[in-house]
Design a protein around this nucleic acid. Structure first.
Lengths: 333, 333
DNA sequence: CTGAAAGCGCTTACAG
DNA sequence: CTGAAAGCGCTTACAG
């Protein structure tokens, strides 16, 4: 019932190999033959069966994409850019939302191998080790996004998180803040480690004590919940840095609900990412903005270039964040 | 270099068929043989190659998922739920972000067929026709999500949009509003048509004129831009209904920036979807909330059930929306 | 320029 | 309970 190259070949009274070559515009095939093949293919409603091709060519034209939280606009935007670029290149995207689960990530890697995915674009779950990726990366290209993995040398694109931390610190220091709290961030992610490093180093140079840290997952709800921990800190901080905008927006809501310190009069709040939600919020969120679209597009481009030339040198790109002042930060009183 | 069943069979001195059956726990295989096969599989680092299996079984264990805007939290949450359920069932997800582009959608359908996807979960782009899906749906199950498609009979899960429109209307009418504006919504989507129908019918029953409609895409930016059109309406409306929360939140930001009418004193604003952002906004957004997780989980379940039994009767489920009052709507003055 | 043959890695009757 | 054979739908040398 499904049309195969064999059916087309029989109908035209030629061989399957000729049909196959004609279909793929192999220049060996006579122009006239190609035309006839094309016409028959169309007319008969032929649909290319990649399973057959895959078995021979070991290419599936599909790519795995794994991130940890699709509900975080940061990742949703990265994925959208990746998908856009890969679709334009005729590739399919296998998606996994790993939710920081190493098991889930491992299952996905295994499934990708079984499905012969040609490569992987991944933001590894917190606590991933090189070991988790070694096997997969040995046979297929991997592009790391946003987080790096010590010991895994492959193409990668990350934000300059150290600079991000520095920008946040400088902004608050310039406003006169000295008692600062830090909310959230997976301590086992490179992103957190670098932001924290850049932040604390900048404070230290200014002779300011490192921030009190409040643990929180990267969600609005966790940000709102952090409000109560924040107000208990004694002496009270005059500024709070949130690992992500989602956290910051949640914190703002939590503070409003509990009648906590006013922002920015009593407390300055700054986030990371630069998601649209922060721009539309009231007050507009001050943030260290990161270009999600560039990250996604570049990651896809890196992978496509790698697939086109396995031997090329490793590429890495560092996206420079920018401080986008809003109305949630103000001078320390 | 890559281990195949043949390699494993040779090493054990048994046949490939036995290895294949043992691997898949076929009860015909002796327990002892199965154990030996399992051990060898593990030891040799065998990875199942689905391309080979696919050719025989015509099953790929992968499912297409197509929505129109990954950057809209509504869809991001639906996808997250779908992916979660499908991954748990051992299926891979092919993702497409169609951006309301019929070409993109067609390309995806074609690619899914070429990749032997077992089925499709889709929110069809605005202006899709049954024709676009007929061919695909003839050979593989399709589950419609959020939007329906007149003439395509298949499993589907939608919100009760007519009731949604009614809830919004009743809420505003109860508050005394009579001059109402409506912002956004793709006029060629079933979602819009039903919301509009439910909304206007309710107004009509109350003897209130239908709302002025302002066109806008479903983004924050479009919502912000709509603010200027809104304030030009004469006589000024006392309430605005936005097709989605993203639009509503954008509108609120646009009004603030332009120093437009105060919300809710001079203008009530209500959205649809119930995304987290609205709950955290200040003022909290009044909205007609729709359970995204249920939609996603159900869509995945419908597809899995269909794959398990092609002959089962068509399933459809209607998710009932709820009015979630916030602080952006108030009595008409 | 075209065709016959082999083979990619599985699974599935079928025979024993 | 196990194995030999055929075949899924392609592509790729190779021969002509």
């Amino acid at each position: 019932m499904k049309i195969t190259l064999r059916d087309v070949a029989e109908r035209l009274g030629i061989s399957v190999s000729t049909v196959s070559m004609a279909m793929r515009d192999n220049p060996l095939v006579a122009e006239e033959t190609r035309r006839r093949v094309r016409a028959a293919l169309d007319e008969m409603g032929y649909v290319y069966n990649r399973a057959g091709a895959q078995l021979r060519t070991r290419q599936s034209l599909s790519i795995g994409v794994a991130i940890n939280d699709l509900m975080n606009p940061f990742f949703a935007e990265v994925i959208a850019a990746v998908e856009d670029r890969l679709a334009a290149a005729g590739r399919m995207v296998f998606l996994a939302n790993t939710s920081e689960s190493p098991e889930r990530q491992q299952m996905f890697l295994r499934a990708l191998a079984e499905h012969n995915a040609d490569g992987l674009i991944v933001c590894p779950v917190a606590g991933s080790s090189v070991e988790d990726f070694r096997r997969f990366a040995a046979s297929r290209p991997v592009v790391l996004v946003s987080r790096t993995l010590a010991g895994l040398t492959c193409d990668h694109i990350v934000n300059d998180d150290e600079m991000g931390g520095m920008l946040a610190a400088r902004h608050l220091l310039d406003l006169g803040h000295r008692r600062i709290a830090w909310i959230g961030g997976g301590t086992r992610t490179s992103t957190f480690q670098r932001r924290w490093a850049g932040f604390t180093a900048t404070l230290e140079r200014a002779g300011v004590a490192p921030p009190v840290r409040i643990a929180a997952r990267a969600t609005r709800e966790a940000g709102a919940a952090a409000a109560s921990s924040l107000v208990e800190i004694d002496p009270p901080p005059t500024a709070a840095v949130c690992f992500g905008d989602l956290l910051a927006l949640g914190l703002l809501a939590g503070l409003r609900r509990s009648g906590g310190p006013r922002v920015p009069e009593d407390l300055s709040v700054i986030g990371f990412d630069g998601i649209g939600e922060g721009e539309m919020a009231d007050p507009v969120l001050t943030t260290v903005s990161i270009d999600r679209e560039t990250i996604g597009k570049t990651a896809a481009a890196f992978l496509l270039e790698r697939l086109a030339d396995k031997g090329r040198p490793i590429q890495s790109s560092v996206v420079v964040p920018t401080l986008r002042p809003g109305a949630t930060t103000g001078p320390c009183r």
